[in-house]
Simulated assay, not measured.
Amino acid sequence: MAAPAAAAAAVEVLFDFDKTIIQWDSDDWVITKLGAADAFNRLRPTMRWNSLMDRMMGELHAQGRSADDIRECLRSAPLDAHVLSAIRTASALGCDLKVVSDANSFFIETVLEHHGVLGCFSEINTNPARVDAQGRLRISPFHDPTTSPHGCSLCPDNMCKGKIIQRIQGTDGAKNKHFIYIGDGKGDYCPSLKLGEGDYVMPKENYPLWNLISSDPQLIKAEVHPWSSGEEFERILLKLVNKLITLHAHGSQLDYKCNMSNPVSTEVGHHQTLPVPN
């Protein structure tokens, strides 16, 4: 019988965060709920998104908003019960769950921890965030465009999700893995192109990723399964997970075991891998 570690890695589920795990955009939620929309709209035409979000955290700090205020704002946002159920079930079945998101580590960890699913994820690949000595939330780019540009024309300059997927695919034992990628945005198209036969992509229907896939379906080697609601998200994901588990059980006789350890935030380029706090 295969070792538990090998079994847990056989099915890998990669999640976008904004408008995928959560129904809303976390940046927009914080900016709107904490009253910074006017400053955001004024600065938006002049700045790249990642730099803009760092600037907006400075605006909130100047208005007297603390990191705890931002945490409470994020905790107040609803999540679909079907999505949470799907995450817990996929993890319990032994899938290796990872986040690949252009949000930031502070927002993602706050939301996932609040809803009790942070430990379901082995990695969170996103823009690094930290609270500085003055109590201001700082957000940095995943790829620093000034020192380590990623060179992908499909992706924003601060993050190429396709390169993240290629790194994951290049890890030990990747040739025995099957990948399920779930996303909605334009930035999720590049990683979808990196998937191969035997993999699956779940685009949110009528969102940019779905539209890009639909414009030329032949470019996608993975099998495409669109979804439009939390209920469909859960049903389709668990159907694909169970299909792959059955495949591995029959083909490789892998023994699945849930890995509920705390995840790590994985950053490449000029960043180091950092542990996610409990």
Rank of each mutant, 00 (worst) to 15 (best):
A2D: 14
A7P: 01
E12S: 13
V13D: 00
F15S: 00
F15E: 01
I22F: 05
W24T: 08
D25K: 08
T32A: 12
L34H: 03
G35W: 01
R55Q: 15
R55T: 15
M57T: 12
G58D: 14
H61V: 07
Q63S: 13
A67E: 02
D68G: 07
D69M: 11
I70H: 05
R71F: 02
E72M: 08
L74I: 07
S76T: 11
S76D: 15
P78D: 07
L79C: 08
T89W: 05
S91N: 14
G94P: 01
A103V: 06
C120W: 08
N127P: 02
N127I: 04
V131D: 08
D132G: 03
L137P: 09
P141F: 04
P149M: 04
P149L: 04
C152R: 08
D157T: 09
N158R: 07
G162A: 13
R167T: 13
G170L: 07
T171G: 12
D172Q: 12
K177V: 04
Y181M: 00
S192W: 10
L193P: 02
G198N: 03
P203N: 11
K204H: 10
N206P: 06
P208E: 11
L212R: 13
S214E: 15
Q218C: 05
K221M: 06
W227V: 00
S228Y: 02
L237M: 15
L238I: 13
L238E: 03
V241D: 00
H248N: 08
K257L: 13
P263V: 06
P263T: 05
V264I: 14
V268A: 12
P277A: 12
